[in-house]
Design a protein around this nucleic acid. Structure first.
Lengths: 124, 124
DNA sequence: GATTCATATTCCTTAATAGGAATATAGATA
DNA sequence: TATCTATATTCCTATTAAGGAATATGAATC
């Protein structure tokens, strides 16, 4: 059942945090590292997990992998992501992540979702 | 995180079916067996799992254990159960279970949620 | 008190998952 | 071509979960 696969994705805190952040827009792995403050392996693996089950999509952009929520999510996925948003609003942990994302906003505006310290603007 | 515990409960098909049925009202284990057509151990264990995480409550009534959704669910739980309801509406498996529940309706009306074949009415 | 009925628990095996350390890869750059 | 950067994968270990067979428990009944 597709629904079970969705819930399997949702039953890990790191993945919930990832999805909460992605609700704001696409992002690259190094930014997840910065916001979540978790080691690269951990983030990369959880993103792979989410990807294998269709909860995120990704696209390479130079050295960076940009992850984002599916362009055409199923009704079930849409419903559950909305539900997660609803629940996340209350949680300090999620709020904190969004605050950190905000701090990156200027950088993101300048360089796009892969705007890491060393990154050149996507459009030269 | 409480939210993760909820999702852990939701990532098994049997448990989803149980919760879907419980949304209609309290029920005893033997009725779950009848509706889900799964062995007793399996159902009993999943109910214990749900109970240990606060997704269901139960109460003994003679020989029967009556399970039901929490009287005072947290906001998160309420939100997620509503979301599940929403998703379940589409799924044949869930519909089938509800249809089977409907077939038991007359019996339930006569004997309450523990109205198994041999059960006496709850109120004598 | 012995039996029966509904349900729970234990024991076992198997499979899935998480996390970290180390290593591999793909693209960009020198 | 060699190197660097961002990210992915492999290998390992520990934990958790699922399912079934057998058994235990608690309440009711004989």
């Amino acid at each position: 059942m597709q629904l079970v696969k969705i819930y399997e994705c949702l039953c890990d805190e790191t993945r919930l945090r990832v999805l909460n952040i992605l609700a704001q827009g696409p992002l690259c792995v190094c930014h997840f590292q910065e916001i979540l403050r978790e080691p690269q392996v951990k983030i990369s693996k959880h993103l792979a997990y989410l990807r294998s089950r269709g909860l995120v999509e990704c696209e390479r952009q130079g050295n960076w992998m940009i992850y984002e929520l599916p362009a055409k999510p199923s009704r079930e996925l849409r419903t559950n992501l909305a539900c997660l948003q609803d629940c996340a609003r209350e949680h300090p942990a999620f709020q904190r992540d969004l605050a950190r994302l905000q701090k990156l906003a200027p950088k993101l505006a300048a360089t796009g979702p892969c705007g890491c310290a060393t990154a050149k603007p996507a459009v030269r």
